[in-house]
Design a binder for these strands. Structure first.
Lengths: 138, 138
DNA sequence: TTATACCCTATCGGATTAGTAGACTTTACA
DNA sequence: TGTAAAGTCTACTAATCCGATAGGGTATAA
């Protein structure tokens, strides 16, 4: 399941990318347009800012704006920041590897290889899709 | 994330499929061999029985056994029974479709098409992988 | 008749998710 | 210089889900 957090994050990014000018947009505007709880969106945008994708400006006339071009922002990156690992099981995660604590041995685990396959496929999509692609296709 | 439920379910099925004879195997044996909480496994096997994949025999010498051949059990089916929808978002689920309650319009949703793509890819893997495949590859 | 093993219901603690509240800081502008 | 607009930060909450557990009930082989 995709969390709302990630979904909202992607929506907010595409919203910003679709604008003509890259001027600060208040959270309230994004929240209203995209039908997102404003307070929740605050924390999401903050994460994206700390990760270097968004800039912000305080005070009147302030808001959030993109720091990168839409075609430079991969879905995979956004997903990892907001959602976490792309793999369905920690023991096949590239960026968040962890041994499954219920599994004595990965080599003999019947699910392991299957999950690697799923990971590779999903990864291929997420790595090859940018915010720009999302805008074009939709 | 893949739940333990599904993971355990797949492990239990492969365990049964790997045996020479298709004779009833007590839950306790499967649980111990595969390192699974026995009580939890009970409910999982019960679900698989009700779905028609396993048969059971009560009393001494009883246990669970496969009702289908290993190459007739698709991962996709097991997944749907134990985990639920394969899609990451309800609005692109084939078997569990539901409108996303936060999304006013699917047609203009920026995430929708992306998630269809992910679903199709994952589905392809799960539909084309059987318990037998899992055994062979591992 | 007894031990074995599945069947069923209920419950529980912990984690996570989505959202809320409220105080604080920075800034534009009248 | 005061005020309203806007982001920042911390804390809290309600709801849900997950994995596991408890315990009694029922069927059956020996």
């Amino acid at each position: 399941m995709l969390s709302r957090k990630t979904k909202y994050g992607l929506k907010a990014l595409t919203f910003l990318a679709k604008r003509e000018e890259n001027e600060p947009v208040p959270i309230s505007v994004i929240a209203e347009s995209e039908n997102i709880s404003q307070k929740f969106l605050e924390s999401i945008l903050l994460s994206m800012r700390k990760a270097g994708y968004l800039g912000s400006k305080k005070g009147k006339g302030g808001g959030y704006y993109l720091l990168k071009e839409a075609d430079e922002i991969k879905v995979a990156e956004v997903y990892r920041i907001l959602e976490g690992p792309i793999a369905m099981v920690p023991c096949v995660s590239l960026n968040f590897y962890e041994k499954c604590d219920d599994c004595p041995d990965e080599a003999t685990c019947s699910v392991h290889k299957l999950m690697i396959q799923v990971r590779d496929n999903t990864l291929k999509i997420f790595e090859n899709t940018t915010i720009e692609d999302i805008i074009i296709r939709a």
